[in-house]
Amino acid sequence: MHSSFRTPGWFYFVLAFGITWAFWLVPVLASRGALPVGHGVQLACLFAGSFGPFISAFVAVYRDGGWLAVREFAGRALRYRMGLFYFLAAMLLVPIAGAVSMLWMAGHGGAPFALQVSLSHFPLLYAELFIFGGSVNEEFGWSYATDRLQQRQSLLRAAVWLGVIWGCWHIPLFFITGLTQSFLPFWAFLVFTVALRIVIVWGYVSTRQSILVALLFHTASNFSFNLFAVVDRSPKHDERGFIGYALAMLVIALVVAFTARCYRGASQDSIASAAR
Rank of each mutant, 00 (worst) to 15 (best):
V205C: 08
N222H: 08
W104M: 12
S182T: 05
V94S: 04
W169F: 11
E72C: 02
I243Y: 01
Q116R: 15
R6H: 11
L156W: 00
A106R: 12
V251G: 06
N226Y: 02
I243H: 05
F186K: 12
P95R: 03
V256S: 01
S234T: 13
T20A: 15
Y80E: 13
M102Q: 14
A57S: 05
V136K: 06
V94C: 11
Q209C: 09
Y245K: 02
F54T: 14
Y12L: 01
L84K: 11
G52L: 05
S270A: 11
I243E: 12
F258N: 13
G9I: 00
A248T: 04
R157S: 13
Q150A: 02
R264Q: 14
G241C: 07
F174R: 11
A16H: 01
T146Y: 01
G109W: 00
A60S: 15
M1W: 00
L35E: 05
R63A: 14
R208W: 00
G141H: 04
A257Q: 01
G107T: 10
G65F: 07
W142T: 02
W67R: 15
A214T: 07
S273Y: 03
R76E: 12
A114M: 05
F54Y: 11
S224K: 09
R148A: 03
F186C: 12
S118L: 09
V100Q: 01
G134I: 03
A260L: 05
V199A: 10
Y12R: 02
L35K: 02
A275L: 10
L247I: 09
T193D: 04
I96Y: 01
G244H: 04
Y144F: 14
L129S: 06
H170Q: 07
F189I: 09
L103I: 10
Q150F: 00
F5N: 12
W10S: 14
T259Q: 10
C168W: 00
W202Q: 03
A111H: 08
R71G: 06
D238H: 06
L149N: 09
V194Q: 11
L155M: 07
A253H: 02
W161K: 13
V41E: 06
A266D: 08
L35D: 10
W67K: 14
F217S: 08
H170K: 09
V37L: 08
G49T: 10
A60H: 01
A90V: 02
N226G: 15
G49S: 12
